[in-house]
């Protein structure tokens, strides 16, 4: 259980205390990742099924790694070549998988709401690993974790200091890119304000969805304004299929007005501001390689923290026994 919740469908449903419950446990999980022997018996005998209807090597292997470190059995089930292509419905598929008696079902699906539909029909815990343009809660949590870690280091904590989540209060995070199609942006908008941070969103008007300000976002269309004074900048991936949608005329113009390179970063960003990206990066489109690999980038921390956060989520939802981690 995460607070009152059997499932992790979205961060919209989680309150501040529940978000902190996961983040604090993730901090302990991160200790495990620093050990030479990265394995604990916490979830021995538990089964985690990764049910991915959309290709995503990164998220899937992050959940898989998290499960394995906790000694759970992880099974990957991808939609390609499966019964789904033969017309089996999502509900059928979920019920068939449930017959395998998993403790946690991790679902990635192109349709918003799909994990919730499954959660209503199965007995096990369901984790949303990204549904359409709705939410990607574990990403939202790992982003918050990474930001707290960055702010803790900036405040003088050592490289292995435990993140102080209180430091998110009063900070400003700018999310830049195709917000309309981004579940990462939505999960960020549901999470960061609950931890006291302000969120700005920025992109061409065609990529800013109707009513996003009702989610607490401050809307910008000019990148220099959006990043001015921000403590962190999250660059979203531009998906090539959006070009000609027609949301933008092309990547060249996009990159010129909404992409970040080293020169713009130095000119427009606050000195201590960090840069996040949910990956995979379109290098040279939203982010120039020298920025992605540069000193402000916390992108690799995001990857590692992703494993720690997902360990915490699996632990809480699989009902892990003794809390010795």
């Amino acid at each position: 259980m995460i607070g009152r919740h059997r499932h992790l469908i979205g961060l919209e449903e989680l309150d501040r205390g529940e978000i902190l419950q996961v983040l604090q446990l993730a901090a302990s999980m991160k200790e495990v990742l620093r050990r030479p022997l990265k394995k604990v018996p916490t979830l021995r005998g538990k089964a985690v099924v990764n049910l991915f209807f959309e290709a995503s090597t990164r998220t899937r292997s992050s959940f898989e790694t998290a499960a394995k470190i906790l000694s759970a059995d992880a099974l990957n089930w991808t939609a390609a070549g499966s019964s789904v292509s033969k017309g089996e419905t999502l509900v059928d598929t979920a019920r068939n998988l449930e017959a395998m008696r998993p403790d946690v079902l991790v679902i990635r699906h192109a349709a918003s709401g799909a994990p919730r539909l499954v959660a209503e029909r199965v007995g096990c815990a369901v984790v949303n690993a990204g549904d359409g343009a709705h939410e990607h809660p574990s990403q939202g949590l790992l982003d918050a974790f990474t930001l707290a870690e960055h702010f803790t280091r900036a405040a003088g904590g050592g490289p292995e200091a435990a993140p102080d989540f209180g430091l998110l209060a009063g900070k400003t995070v700018a999310i830049v890119g195709d917000v309309s199609h981004s579940r990462v942006a939505r999960s960020g908008l549901h999470c960061l304000p609950k931890l006291g941070a302000k969120v700005r969103v920025c992109g061409p008007p065609t990529m800013i969805p109707a009513g996003i300000e009702r989610m607490g976002a401050e809307v910008h269309h000019a990148l220099p304004d959006a990043v001015k004074g921000a403590d962190a900048v999250m660059m979203l991936r531009i998906q090539h299929e959006r070009i000609g949608d027609p949301l933008i005329p092309g990547t060249r113009e996009y990159s010129k007005f909404w992409g970040l390179n080293a020169r713009k970063a130095e000119e427009w960003l606050s000195p201590g501001a960090c840069i996040l990206h949910p990956g995979p990066i379109n290098r040279g489109v939203e982010l120039a390689p020298e920025v992605a690999d540069g000193p402000r980038s916390v992108i690799l921390d995001q990857v590692q923290n992703g494993v720690a956060v997902r360990m915490a989520v699996l632990y809480l939802l699989a009902g892990g026994g003794e809390a010795h981690v």
Partner: peptide
């Protein structure tokens, strides 16, 4: 899938 507006934006559904 639904009316375009704040609710569709929150639900991640095409409006």
């Amino acid at each position: 899938a639904m009316h375009e507006g704040a609710a569709a934006t929150r639900m991640g559904l095409k409006g």
